[in-house]
């Protein structure tokens, strides 16, 4: 009803004095300002797509993932992939999966998109009661992120070695489009790894007084450096995911004969 400029648009159940918040219906509290569902849907499609792709790719065998002088990062290190008879790719990607699965950025992505805990800021959740967060298994394993970091750091020189090998074919200098993609992949993965929140803590974040500890100034410098990278951690996370995808897909397309690698070979 409208009464001289003011009208009642809706009403809800009354709340007792001790109740928390307003107890009108969920629809009344739903966000009306932005398509909050756009981000979770995008993450489900892109991240879900990558998960499905990487599981498929890691089960096809190393033969599909190698095209001299290139090697897919999903099958790196190559010597490990060569010595495992069944699904070597799955073993090779265990550390990257652990690193991304416990990553502070990806936690936001999958909690919002896959677990709907919550699906968006100020958006009502489907589940009520029984929420344990990261206090209970399995999400409490996210506290082990630093150990996944240690493994991920080892992967950077391994992938750099693969990229260096991509400069050589039959003992001659080789510069191909794939070489450039592999180098870019190493740079982006290094950016993602070195911008890690756990690394930021380990190099200096745990120190309360830089001027009071040994190598304090150096640790402060390292902390500032990682902090600068850390600001873009979500960006590093996504672009490095795409670069891994790009290298693997590029090698497979070469193997499928879709095109030949544009290159320069210096004999």
């Amino acid at each position: 009803m409208t009464v001289r400029g003011a009208e009642v648009a809706g009403s809800g159940k009354g709340a007792s004095a001790g109740d928390a918040g307003v107890t009108t219906g969920v629809l009344a509290r739903l966000r009306r300002d932005a398509p909050w569902w756009l981000l979770p849907v995008t993450v489900v499609v892109v991240l879900g797509g990558f998960i499905v792709y990487s599981i498929w790719a890691s089960t096809t065998g190393v033969g599909e993932a190698r095209n001299a002088p290139y090697l897919s990062p999903l099958y790196s290190p190559g010597w490990l992939a060569n010595h495992i008879p069944v699904f070597p790719g799955l073993l090779c990607i265990l550390v990257p999966i652990a690193f991304r699965g416990t990553c502070y950025y990806y936690r936001k992505a999958y909690h919002r998109s896959f677990l709907w805990d919550p699906p968006g800021c100020a958006v009502p959740e489907l589940r009520h009661g029984g929420y344990r967060g990261e206090t209970a298994f399995p999400l409490s394993l996210n506290n082990l992120h630093r150990f996944a970091l240690y493994g991920a750091v080892v992967y950077i020189p391994i992938l750099a070695f693969d990229a260096a090998n991509a400069f050589s074919l039959g003992g001659h200098l080789y510069l191909g489009l794939g070489t450039a993609i592999m180098v870019l992949n190493v740079v982006l993965l290094a950016g993602y790894t070195l911008s890690c929140h756990s690394l930021r803590h380990l190099v200096g974040g745990s120190v309360d007084c830089f001027s009071c500890v040994r190598f304090g100034r150096q640790r402060y410098g390292a902390w500032r450096g990682v902090t600068r990278l850390n600001v873009f951690h979500p960006t590093w996370a996504w672009v490095s995911l795409f670069s891994v995808w790009a290298v693997d897909a590029y090698v497979r397309m070469l193997n499928a004969g879709w095109f030949t690698d544009p290159h320069l070979l210096f004999r």
Partner: peptide, 12 residues
């Protein structure tokens, strides 16, 4: 509105 009484949105 106040707790324990009718509550709702009023249009202005």
């Amino acid at each position: 509105g106040i707790p324990g009484e009718e509550q709702g949105e009023v249009t202005y």
